[in-house]
Design a protein around this nucleic acid. Structure first.
Length: 570
DNA sequence: GCCGTTTTCGGCCCGACTGTTTTCAGTCG
């Protein structure tokens, strides 16, 4: 059992304890232990074997015993009992905005409701509003939340889908009788959320595909030569099994999107060519990729991320598809948190991890003082962190640490420190973390005010959305983009797979209007530095090239760029 | 349930908002 799974179980116990109304500090202790284990560099199993589990912070005698049981026996009686005593539906209800453990408990205790479906029905019957502590507004809010959840249902984060797609590809490649294998569909197009994982496998033996995938679920063959299965994560997968010589066209076809295919087929029609899901004019096009499909139509290769049916085919016809950003173009990491605020690793640990990934600089951007929940930095602690960064930079071993901050944009649009303190940072990310309920005009004015502050370098996660969990706050994104361009402020493409904000649909508009973009992982632990790959996918989807993205610069170039901006606006 | 010390139990992160109340509980970031 790996650390991720152990951490997840401890986290679930903490939620179950809250739902049962147990001592909240006990629940928090489990949460702390979960976090602590997630941050460990070595496997818990190894610590158990060496009798060193008690050295992990947050693990006392009781938890050492329980975690040891989990590792040795593969299960924990306490968790099993707890889990059995709480209906699964109650955990799902917690995803509804405005519903916390106490309210869910009350709904269960007084109305006997155990599923979201029943809850919806009770709201429609006006039964919730009569419950003590609840009212009309709460009932409406819950109904709205349920509507939102329904919209999200059947969608999955790109990060999970990519991980699952990898596992599928590995499983298929392990079989010699399967030729070419590639990821297609929404995952290949790097949609921020996906409904299915599509793959194309070149073989005339669907049975082999089924055998190869049996360890991952219960694969079955549909009549159209498609193998389907539901993965352990809950994501459905479709593997299109085609003869190897039809691979290239099938990969093109199943990558989509439908709108893109319509444009390509129109192009083919004009050229007097027929293109179906298998061949061109009945003749297969050979290739391990689908580039030959585009070549045969006289088109420049269209990277899968751009295949959304806008103007990509027209651009390709005129050789106007730009060189898109690649992960190798990035030299520095912007926007990570450390133990100073709500991160799990120290400045040095984050720096070591960034160096290990080949980056040459790292901007540490912890939370500012108003973010009490995230242990935001007082002015004194800012200075303390700066001293630590200076000391680490004195023998930097190839990685430079920049003094950054993620400052809250206060409700009135001011930043969270006096101007003289803000001037001490190399880089200032300004983000909205509170008061999401302003009107669009008020919110936009608030953000514009922050953009106009001379110290603001980057506008963090510009719309504040959390994918499959929370809509962004209302904001006039185009106005924000224009203000940012005018005042030399960089727009963040937050690469956390939960955010991917700014959205790629806005990124292209920003790029066309001269905006500069930074890609930041918003990492709260070392492992999350690798989240930049999701940002790169979305950047490509937004038609960005290396020149549009500021962390393709060297540290010196970036600092010069930021200083220039400051001197211009002061 | 953990931690630290006050060596045997008290404190554990907090401020603001919202909706329900009529002084506060629950949720959220």
């Amino acid at each position: 059992m790996d650390n991720t799974r152990i951490s997840a179980i401890l986290k679930e116990i903490s939620i179950l304890l809250e739902l049962k109304g147990e001592n909240p500090f006990k629940a928090r202790a489990y949460q702390a232990a979960a976090r602590s284990i997630a941050a460990l560099q070595e496997p818990v199993a190894a610590l158990v074997a060496q009798g060193r589990l008690s050295e992990v912070p947050g693990l006392g005698p009781a938890l050492v015993e329980k975690v040891t049981e989990l590792v040795m026996a593969g299960r924990m009686a306490y968790y099993d009992d707890l889990s059995a005593s709480v209906p699964d539906g109650l955990l799902e209800m917690l995803a509804i905005p405005g519903l916390g453990a106490k309210k869910v408990r009350a709904i269960y205790d007084h109305l006997g409701i155990t599923t979201i479906g029943e809850l919806e029905y009770a709201c429609l019957e006006n039964r919730l509003a009569t419950l003590e502590g609840f009212g009309q507004k709460t009932q409406e809010k819950i109904l709205k939340g349920i509507e939102q959840l329904k919209r999200y249902r059947g969608h999955h984060l790109l990060s999970q889908a990519l991980q699952d797609a990898d596992a599928l590809v590995q499983a298929l490649r392990a079989h010699r009788s399967i030729g070419r294998v590639a990821v297609a569909g929404e995952v290949r197009r790097r949609m921020e959320v996906v409904r299915t994982i599509d793959l194309v496998a070149g073989t005339d033996q669907p049975d082999t595909v089924i055998a190869a995938l049996r360890p991952l679920g219960e694969p079955s063959l549909t009549s159209a030569g498609t193998v389907t299965l539901i993965l352990p994560s809950g994501i459905p997968a479709c593997i299109r099994v085609v003869p190897d010589e039809e691979f290239a066209v099938a990969l093109y076809y199943w990558t989509g999107s439908e709108a893109h295919r319509a444009l390509v087929e129109e192009r083919a029609r004009v050229l007097g060519v027929t293109l179906d899901e298998r061949s061109r004019d009945g003749v297969p096009i050979d290739g391990s990729e689908d580039a030959p499909v585009y070549r045969t139509l006289g088109l420049q290769f269209i990277p899968p991320e751009l295949r959304e049916g806008t103007d990509e085919v027209e651009r390709a016809a005129h050789q106007m598809i730009p060189d898109l950003l690649t992960a190798d173009d990035l030299r520095g990491v912007l926007h990570v948190h450390t133990v100073y605020s709500d991160g799990t690793h120290s400045v040095q640990e984050m720096a070591d991890a960034a160096r290990g990934l080949g980056y040459t600089y790292l901007a540490v951007c912890d939370h500012s003082r108003s973010a009490a929940y995230a242990n935001g930095l007082s002015i004194e602690r800012v200075r303390q962190q700066h001293r630590e960064i200076d000391a680490l930079n004195a023998h930097g071993r190839g990685l430079r640490i920049l003094k950054g901050i993620e400052t809250d944009i206060l409700p009135d649009g001011n930043l969270d420190y006096p101007d003289d303190v803000l001037a001490e940072f190399d880089l200032v990310i300004a983000s909205v973390h509170s008061r999401f309920t302003l009107s669009e005009t008020e919110m936009t004015d608030r953000i514009v005010r922050a953009i106009r502050h001379p110290s603001t370098s980057i506008l963090g996660h510009p719309t504040g959305r959390l994918l499959l969990a929370r809509e962004g706050y209302p904001v006039d994104v185009r106005r924000v983009i224009h203000e940012a361009v005018e005042h030399g402020v960089i727009l963040e493409l937050n690469a956390s797979p939960h955010r991917l904000d700014l959205d790629w649909r806005h990124l292209r508009y920003a790029q066309e209007h001269g905006a500069k973009i930074s890609i930041g992982p918003d990492a709260h632990q070392a492992r999350e530095l690798q989240d930049v790959i999701y940002g790169v996918g979305i950047a490509r989807k937004g038609w960005l090239s290396a020149k549009d993205v500021v962390n393709t610069m060297t540290a010196d170039e970036l600092l010069k760029f930021l200083r220039h901006k400051k001197s211009k606006t002061r």
